[in-house]
């Protein structure tokens, strides 16, 4: 459980980081919090020839409101978001509250928003939140900067739209989601979720007029569930009955993997329960 030899470089600025990775080629990787990359290197499952450490790029560590938008710098740690003051996350409480599901405190003090999005785990809270809230992933590379809509970012199992030399700079959540929630289940506190469910409800006058449902743990990428969302768009009364129906619809719509580990039937049951629970929590928020 020791990594193979690699070269270590520390970046001074964003342009330098991306230029260096471009120059070093395919086998170079950015190193942020190291909470996904280093364990994979220790197991020799990842063997980058070079690491370009971006951890000292302080300008990428921020949490900022501008008008209705929430900007999270790529190097902002899960723990910094988790402990953000109320005023800076007003309307985006779901983002802050979701952080406590990520690993354990020591991991959250190092792991970063950008690293999580780039890693692209289908149950990662950041990936689910990004898809749920239509986030924009802002990147920089030697070819300039671009904005990737979260809905298009995740291509498959740990695979994203990012080029090897493309650095995530920030993730932008475009509008407040006061009635959103993320919940999940794992056998142990801090584990990656077996199933995670995130919902965002539009609520008006005690009725649900629209909503989004995103699931982790049932597909290679964070999965939106139109069948369940349709139920939320019908203007029904916001109550347990609707939420249970939404859970059932989501469970019927998904085709989760059948092991290794938890089986498909179990994951489907979890979807049913967790979507309903997430709706309840979203409404109560």
């Amino acid at each position: 459980m020791k990594p193979p030899p690699f070269g270590y470089h520390r970046a001074r600025d964003v342009a330098g980081a991306t230029a260096l990775v471009a120059e070093l080629g395919e086998d170079a990787k950015f190193l942020a919090g190291g909470q996904s990359l280093i364990p994979m290197m220790n197991f020799r499952l990842a063997r980058p020839a070079h690491l370009v450490d971006i951890a000292r790029l302080g300008e990428l560590s921020f949490l900022r409101r501008d008008d209705d938008r929430l900007h999270v710098g790529a190097l902002t740690t899960h723990h910094e978001v988790e402990s953000a003051p109320d005023r800076s996350v007003r309307g985006f409480e779901v983002v802050r509250e979701a952080m406590r599901w990520i690993g354990h405190l020591p991991i959250r003090t190092r792991g970063t928003a950008g690293g999580s999005l780039a890693h692209g785990d289908a149950t990662a809270e950041w990936c689910l939140l990004a898809v749920l809230l239509d986030a924009e992933i802002v990147t920089a590379s030697p070819r300039g900067s671009r904005v990737i809509p979260a809905g298009e970012a995740f291509l498959g199992f740990f695979t994203t739209l990012l080029e090897p030399d493309e650095l995530i700079v920030e993730v932008v959540f475009p509008k407040p989601a006061p009635h959103a929630a993320l919940t999940e289940f794992a056998e142990r506190r801090g584990d990656f979720a077996i199933v995670a469910a995130a919902v965002d409800l539009d609520v008006a006058g005690g009725r649900v007029t629209g909503g989004r449902v995103v699931l982790g743990g049932v597909a290679p990428v964070p999965l939106r569930v139109p069948a369940a969302e349709a139920l939320l768009g019908a203007g029904e009364r916001a109550d347990a009955e609707l939420f249970a129906a939404c859970g059932r619809a989501a469970a019927e719509a998904v085709d989760p993997p059948d092991g290794p580990g938890p089986g498909a039937d179990y994951r489907r049951s979890l979807v049913r329960a967790l979507v309903a629970r997430a709706c309840e929590e979203a409404l109560a928020r």
């Binding site: 197991f43 142990r188 506190r189 801090g190 584990d191």
Partner: peptide, 28 residues
Amino acid sequence: LFEQVTYDEQGEPSAASFIDYKVPTACE
């Protein structure tokens, strides 16, 4: 409630880290 060492059909251990070998923590 938690721990089990498992193998695939070839006898390859399938719990080679604490991700899969579910030792409980203080939370459990």
